[in-house]
Amino acid sequence: MSKEKLVIESLSLTYSKGAPLALKEVALGIEENSLMAFIGPSGCGKSTFLRCLNRMNDFVRGVEITGRVLLDGRDIYAPDVDVTQLRRRVGMVFQRPNPFPFSIRENVAYGPKLLGERDKGRLGEIVERSLRNSGLWEEVKDRLNAQASSLSGGQQQRLCIARAIAVEPEVLLMDEPTSALDPMATARIEELARELKKYYTVVIVTHNMQQAARVSDHTAFFLMGELVEHGPTTKIFTTPRDKRTEDYITGRFG
C-alpha cells in the first residue's frame, strides 16, 4: 500500500451550533496518486466533506468543524495554516463549469499570475502544458484569446480542470464534475480523470455509481452524513460489507 496523501480523522461538521451533524465522525485515508470516488444519495454529505478538504466551507457562516484533516501529515485546520497556500496545493473543480468571463488564456493563467508569475513566455508554457494535460489544447490552440464562454459545456469543464492544474496542485478535488454535461463530454472527463491520477491525487464526488465503478481505484460510500464503507472499488461493488452499501449499489434507494 502506498503513502496516504490525505488522512481524515473523526471529522464532524455542523452548519450551526446545536443543529444535527451534517458529517459524523468521518475517518478516511486517501492514497497518493490514486483516484477515490465518493458516492451516495444527494444530501448525504459527500460534497460537504469534499469541501472540507480545501476549506471551502470556511465561507459558510456558522459552520463548525471538529476533527483533523492531515495533508502530508499536517493538519490543514491548524491555526498557523495559510488557507491560500492550502488551496493552491488542493485544487478544485466544481459541479457546473465556472470559467471566468475572460479569454481562455487568461482563465488558465489566472492561478500562476496570483503566485507572482509575470513572465509572458513562462505563462505561455504553463497555459499550453495545462491545456495539453486537460486534453483541450488541440481544440483551442488557435483561439486562446477567445472568450471562455464561447466553449461548449464539456470544453468549459476541461478548461476549469486546466485552470486548476495550472498552479501545480498536489490533490485535485472534483465535485460532480460531469453532472451538467452530456454523455460524450462526460466520457472525456472520465478519461481525463484517469489520466490525471498519474500526477495528482484525485478525489471525485459523483452521484453516478457507474462512473465511480468506471474511473476510481477506491470508493467511499456516504449516507446521512456518515461514511458507511470505503475500500477498493472492485470490493465495494462486488462484495460490500455493509447492508446499506449493498442496497444502494443494487439500486434499492437513492
Binding site: 471551502m56 488551496r87 493552491r88 466544481f94 465556472n98 471566468f100 489566472y110 485552470r163 486548476a164
Partner: peptide, 14 residues
Amino acid sequence: PQSQRDASYALGAT
C-alpha cells in the same frame, strides 16, 4: 455569480 468567486478562492486567491 458566487461560483466565480469560488473558482478564484479554490485556486488560492486571497
